[in-house]
């Protein structure tokens, strides 16, 4: 089962035209400068933004389905944990909303918290979490709904620079355990290196280069790709 999407979105100044496909176990990174349409592309797949193209997962066509029936999980840039619910309740929200009985949903949530090493935080409120903890809770919340597709929008951008490397490494292990289809939006080379095998460079709504990171580094197609893949100057 894989994801195949044709995205055609007009939103204000932005005109997005993008074809992409994701296979299991091969996380796709969407990179590009601000305003290129990366988040819009995720929104179109999740059903949050009207898409004139088509999105398929295996033989399921998502276009006619409302957001809540698409089985597309999202980790948002600032996580959007529900402030009025505890960590456990946040993670149990998805299972509950899809009809699981209360106690089963709480059990499932506890299991996910344990897997992501969050069991000790179950009764905290989101306001009492560090950035890295909040990110893991957001991941647990998305995975608890058993999504076929997982979308991560700049999952490390809200974190302090000092902790980013550790959180990134953890995220990489968790994503490796996840059997579904993953797309991560980022504009950081380090994220791409750690998390993704395939890359699409998006500039002004169009794909300007596709391939592996090595291919991009070897032959950057645009000045943006060249700047992105150039090794950071030391000192």
């Amino acid at each position: 089962m894989s994801l195949a999407a044709q995205l055609r979105v007009k939103r204000g100044d932005l005109s997005l035209e993008l074809e992409l496909s994701v296979d299991p176990g091969r996380t796709l990174a969407l990179v590009g400068p601000n305003g290129a349409g990366k988040s819009t592309a995720l929104g179109a797949i999740a059903g949050l933004v009207p898409n004139e193209g088509t999105v398929r997962v295996g033989d399921r066509v998502l276009d006619e389905l409302p957001v809540e029936q698409r089985r597309v999980g999202c980790v948002f840039q600032d996580y959007l944990l529900f402030p009025h619910l505890t960590v456990l309740e946040n993670v149990a929200f998805g299972p509950r909303a899809t009809g699981m009985p209360r106690s089963a949903a709480r059990q499932a949530a506890s299991d996910w918290l344990a897997r992501l090493d969050l069991a000790a935080l179950a009764q905290r409120r989101p306001a009492q979490l560090s950035g890295g903890q909040a990110q893991r809770v957001a991941l647990a919340r998305a995975l608890a709904t058993d999504p076929e597709v997982l979308l991560l929008d700049e999952p490390l951008a809200a974190l302090d620079v000092e902790i980013r490397a550790d959180v990134r490494a953890e995220l990489a292990t968790h994503l490796a355990d996840y059997a579904g289809l993953t797309i991560v939006v980022t504009h950081s080379l380090a994220d791409v290196t750690a998390l993704a095998l395939d890359v699409i460079v998006l500039e002004r709504g169009r794909a300007t280069q596709r391939g592996s990171l090595a291919e991009l580094t070897a032959a950057p197609a645009t000045p943006y790709v060249e700047r992105l893949t150039r090794p950071a100057p030391v000192g």
Binding site: L48, E68, V72, G73, C74, L80, F82, F93, A97, A142
Partner: peptide
């Protein structure tokens, strides 16, 4: 209130 919480809830399968 921040309406994006509603968006997040929808992606979690909530009607």
């Amino acid at each position: 209130s921040d309406r994006r919480f509603e968006t997040a809830a929808a992606t979690l399968g909530a009607t």
